[in-house]
């Protein structure tokens, strides 16, 4: 048996591997889930496609998604799908395929901004409520309950109508509506972790509370939160499209998908492509997030997990 030459970088890699063993195992399990569940894999591909188009979409549009070409407008307007215009054209002669591609950026941006506001609020309030309990918990949870006594869409409509119809007020409205769900999950997890030995130990040796919260408790809270966030990405995209559809949210000429469906409705059914393709884009994107989130949830479900791990062990040994 020849021993392998062990360079420094190799050693470093081994150490890295050792340190992140749990994480690597987690990723491998995720890979297993994707391999085993075709639906989750489809979801993953759809989501990946959405994110890629969201990033590069505006640069690869065959035509300008916003500017109107007045010289060709009469000739080009409301054309059915063809090789030249895959998704047809709108009433100003703009290429709908280009507008849908550019629209991915807006949905991606909206969902990321909403999450970037709602998740930190949810984490901080959830950690505080779960860790301290008592009065803090009571206050935080009662406020959360109030927000949860409305269906999300209605509350988002009320906020965004009051803030004025624009894409920014829609984002703020959605963030205001979405944080309570995260508080609930984080608090519930925090409650179950709070009593564990490692938290006791950290307290006993005098670790600062903020460090206990963010370094010791938070990592144990992240996984269930991740599933919820994945599923919610779809809901946020759906709700923001609904807001734009009824006239709140994105304003023309922004190629927001919900807005496009609403604009196309005026020409339905003779110009079906105008409303069909933007709606299809919303549907596929949201379906992608939901399929992926559903797969992730399976992965975290102990019953399903054991079955997978067990089967894997079976074939290896």
């Amino acid at each position: 048996m020849v021993s392998m030459p062990r360079s420094r970088s190799f050693k470093f890699l081994m150490e890295l591997r050792e340190k992140n063993q749990a994480r690597i195992k987690e990723l491998r399990l995720m890979y297993e889930v994707l391999k085993k569940s075709p639906l989750a894999l489809i979801g993953f591909i759809l989501v990946l496609g959405f994110i890629v188009i969201g990033i590069i979409g505006p640069y690869i549009t065959p035509y300008d998604p916003i500017k109107i070409d007045f010289s060709n407008m009469i000739k080009e307007r409301l054309q059915p799908p063809s090789w030249k215009h895959w998704f047809g054209t709108d009433e100003y002669g703009r290429d709908i395929f280009s507008r849908v591609l550019a629209g991915a950026r807006i949905s991606l941006m909206v969902s990321i901004v909403v999450m970037a506001i709602a998740i930190p609020i949810g984490i901080i309030l959830g950690l505080l409520a779960g860790y301290y309990g008592g009065v803090v918990d009571e206050i935080v949870m009662r406020i959360t309950d109030i927000f949860l006594s409305f269906p999300a869409l209605i509350l988002a409509i009320a906020f965004s109508a009051t803030l004025g119809a624009s894409i920014w007020s829609a984002m703020i409205a959605l963030a205001l509506v979405w944080w309570p769900g995260y508080v609930r999950v984080v608090r519930a997890q925090t409650l179950s972790v709070r009593e564990s030995l490692f938290v006791e130990a950290a307290k006993a040796i005098g670790v600062k509370t903020s460090r206990i919260l963010f370094r010791h408790i938070l990592p144990n809270v992240i996984t269930p939160l991740l599933v919820l966030v994945t599923l919610d990405f779809g809901s946020v995209i759906l709700t923001s499209a609904a807001l734009s559809f009824i006239g709140l949210g994105a304003q023309p000429p922004t190629p927001e998908w919900g807005r496009l469906v609403a604009d196309g409705r005026k020409w339905f059914p003779t110009r079906w492509w105008y409303t069909f393709f933007p709606g299809l884009a919303i549907f596929l994107t949201v379906l992608g997030w939901n399929l992926l989130g559903d797969g992730l949830r399976d992965m975290l479900d102990p019953k399903f997990r054991r079955r997978l791990e067990f089967r894997k062990g079976d074939t290896n040994e």
Binding site: F245, T275, F276, G279, F283
Partner: peptide, 22 residues
């Protein structure tokens, strides 16, 4: 049934309505 359920929560209601009308 599972796929159908996920499609149900993924479809934009306004789009579904238009397609049903069609």
């Amino acid at each position: 049934v599972r796929l159908f359920a996920l499609m149900g929560i993924s479809v934009p209601v306004f789009w579904l309505a238009i397609i049903l009308q069609w």
